[in-house]
């Protein structure tokens, strides 16, 4: 362990250390706390200029209720789920396949293909705006969730392939030699050797992909227009335009949008660091 662990018996030292870190966390999250505070503030108070003081009256319920009742955020929220979940599943499947092949079946040109995946993923996505939009129009998918799902799967597969390839490459080679010695087909190897071992990597990848797709704003505005398919980020920005002076409502909606990735992250945090350790770091 580095830094050297504070000894278990130095209780006071440990408590002080924890307190110090907690203070840093508060400073670190101060801007976010301010937004949370605003989300429970009443409109009158904001109009009166009380932006930072402690709220005299808590309007938590009213504000969040307003978000659900007076805006279409709930629908945008469901749209986001409809877009994000299939995208994450698609990315996990495709990248396990590509990562497996690229790490364990070297062939002439495999490095080039790998380089294309990595390189393509590093491109600023904005430069593909016009061609991608035209493609979706030609496929008749413009302004449907499928347009976003297909694009996100395609784009995230680049990064995910890099991640999975590194992870699978770091698995002990003996396992694969043993599988080959037993005459296992590539499919059997995938099923019985790779899949059971990559779970932590998949967990980490799932969180990252979920976050990227859920938080996407650019493609949401390029590929959709109707409320029936618009995801929550585009909805939030619309809300900012429509409720310009109702900052408490905008804040409440902002917190609402941030919730799923945060919850997902907290739930899977343990797997996340473990998966990342093995996937990104050891590769």
């Amino acid at each position: 362990m580095y830094p050297r662990p504070i000894p278990e018996d130095a209780r006071i030292q440990r408590a002080l250390y924890l307190g110090g870190v907690a203070l840093v966390v508060i400073l670190w999250l101060l801007p976010l706390l301010a937004v949370m505070l605003t989300s429970i503030r009443s409109n009158e108070e904001l109009m009166a200029g009380n932006y930072w003081g402690w709220p005299q009256k808590f309007s938590l319920i009213e504000n969040y209720k307003a978000v659900f009742e007076q805006t279409a955020m709930l629908r945008f929220f469901l749209n986001s789920l409809l877009i994000t979940i299939p995208s994450v599943i698609g990315v996990l499947i495709l990248s396990t396949l590509t990562g497996f092949v690229l790490s364990r079946y070297p062939f002439r040109g495999s490095n080039l293909i790998f380089a294309l995946f990595v390189g393509g993923n590093f491109l600023p996505a904005q430069i593909m705006m016009i061609p991608v939009r035209d493609l979706m129009v030609r496929l008749g998918l413009y302004d449907t969730v499928y347009a976003l799902i297909i694009f996100h799967i395609a784009f995230q597969t680049g990064f995910a392939t890099l991640f999975m390839r590194n992870f699978i490459a770091a698995l002990p080679g003996e396992l694969f030699q043993a599988a080959r010695a037993e005459g296992a087909s590539p499919f059997q190897t995938l099923r019985h050797v790779v899949v059971p071992l990559v779970r932590p990597a998949l967990a980490a990848l799932a969180i990252l992909t979920f976050t990227f797709v859920w938080n996407d704003y650019f493609w949401a505005i390029v590929l959709t227009q109707s409320d029936a398919v618009k995801p929550v980020t585009a909805g939030l920005n619309n809300l900012r335009g429509e409720w310009t002076s109702a900052w408490n409502i905008v804040s409440a909606a902002t917190i609402f949008v941030a919730l799923p990735p945060v919850v997902m992250f907290f739930m899977m945090q343990k797997h996340f660091v473990a998966g990342l350790t093995m996937g990104a770091v050891k590769g």
């Binding site: 704003y217 941030a258 945060v262």
Partner: peptide, 11 residues
Amino acid sequence: FFVPLVLATVT
């Protein structure tokens, strides 16, 4: 500490 990472840019 990780929370900012999962926030949307709009946020």
